[in-house]
């Protein structure tokens, strides 16, 4: 009965740093609260009505306010800076990390590993490796929260939000939805299963450990490029000229309205769903939207594919060339604009 936790486990590189700021704050608070409570009780007893203590006092100057407020505020400012630094590091994505896509919907979490492997409500991760979660929602706002890692980020529809961490301890941890999202909000929970590297490799290879989980072999990014006939236009020899996808990731490209944009998750996703929003300079705005035809998970596969190395030429060349003339323009299956 009395064996219950009072402090959460620390299982990520960020947990210790957040806890350190928290302990500093707790110390700061404890000193002030103890001081205030002591003074209130002490004065109440000492200067209760009728006690014989001397009441004569000099008029105090307003400078007294500064004497206590400046030191306290300086300490608080220090804590602000420290907490800000840790926050900044939380929000700065590492250069290389294990990429996981997260799709939230009422009331479940779907995770998609870089190799297309999918899980629902369970997330298997190797210990000691930086992990980046790229997250979006299919309906309302959710929030992915892993208390043991001290990380949390809202998951919004139609936008990618990212967060990262490095798990540091093998174990199974809670994963919560922290933003109220409707009836079964409190059931929108999952597990983060941090495994040793060996176990993780084993899990990747076999599917034994993940029994009961939905691990699907799905179309890879290359299959999808094929399926949606992206390369009909997006290759140098395509029927209609469109920017090549090879090696475009992370580059800054000029746009037709004179501005420019860096090719990242958000831009690729937008270009698939809202192709007219940001057209690369020098190309005609002819791409149709794929909204309604492509799933969030498939978008993430395409993004991953573009991110790794640009388009794999071999795949592109060996894939059957499009024979249907109107697919080239893609105009016939234009989704309805929203």
């Amino acid at each position: 009965m009395w064996d219950f936790p009072l402090f959460p486990e620390s299982a990520s590189n960020l947990a210790g740093r957040v806890d350190a700021v928290y302990f500093a704050l707790v110390l700061f608070m404890a000193v002030i609260i103890a001081l205030v409570c002591f003074l209130v009780v002490f004065f109440s007893v000492r200067y209760r009505k009728g006690s014989r203590h001397n009441r004569a006092m000099k008029p105090a100057s307003a400078l007294v306010e500064l004497v206590w407020s400046i030191p306290l505020f300086t300490v608080a400012l220090g804590i602000f800076t420290w907490a800000g630094k840790v926050y900044f590091d939380m929000r700065t994505m590492p250069d290389s990390a294990l990429q996981i896509y997260v799709f939230a919907k009422q009331w479940m979490w779907k995770f998609e590993h870089a190799d297309g492997r999918r899980e629902i409500n369970d997330l298997h991760l190797p210990v000691g490796e930086a992990v980046r979660l790229t997250m979006t929602s299919e309906d309302v706002i959710h929030s992915l929260y892993i208390p043991a890692f001290r990380v949390k980020m809202d998951v919004l529809p139609d936008t990618y939000h990212e967060q990262w961490f490095t798990p540091t301890r093998v174990g199974t941890y809670h994963l919560f939805c922290a933003e109220y999202c409707g009836t079964e909000h409190s059931q929108m929970r999952g597990r983060v299963i941090v495994m040793s590297r060996g176990d993780y490799q084993e899990w990747l290879a076999g599917r034994g450990i993940a029994a009961g989980n939905e691990v699907l072999g799905e179309m890879t990014g290359a299959d999808l490029l094929d399926h949606f006939r992206c390369l009909t236009c997006h290759e140098a020899g395509g029927a209609i000229q469109a920017p090549s996808l090879t090696g475009i990731w992370g580059r800054r490209v000029p746009l037709s309205d004179g501005t420019s944009v860096i090719v990242d998750e958000q831009y690729v996703r937008e270009s698939i769903l809202e192709p007219q929003a940001k057209v690369v300079a020098g190309y005609p705005p002819v791409m149709p939207t794929y909204r309604g035809q492509i799933s969030e998970s498939q978008i993430s596969q395409l993004i991953e594919f573009i991110r790794k190395s640009g388009v794999n030429r071999a795949t592109a060349e060996t894939s059957p060339a499009p024979v249907d003339g109107n697919v080239g323009g893609g105009q016939s299956d234009t989704g309805e604009r929203k």
């Binding site: 960020l14 740093r17 957040v18 700021v21 928290y22 704050l25 700061f28 608070m29 002030i32 609260i33 205030v36 409570c37 209130v40 109440s44 608080a76 804590i79 602000f80 907490a83 800000g84 630094k85 840790v86 926050y87 939380m90 929030s143 929260y145 208390p147 001290r150 990380v151 949390k152 980020m153 922290a178 933003e179 109220y180």
Partner: peptide, 30 residues
């Protein structure tokens, strides 16, 4: 009033915990 001083002090100071960015990431919406 005396109870107010004590409880308001605790309430106000824990507000600083929530204002501290990195810690708020953990305790936000909890």
């Amino acid at each position: 009033a005396l109870g107010f001083i004590g409880l308001f002090t605790i309430g106000g100071l824990t507000g600083l915990v929530l204002a501290s960015l990195a810690v708020d990431v953990h305790v936000h919406d909890t």
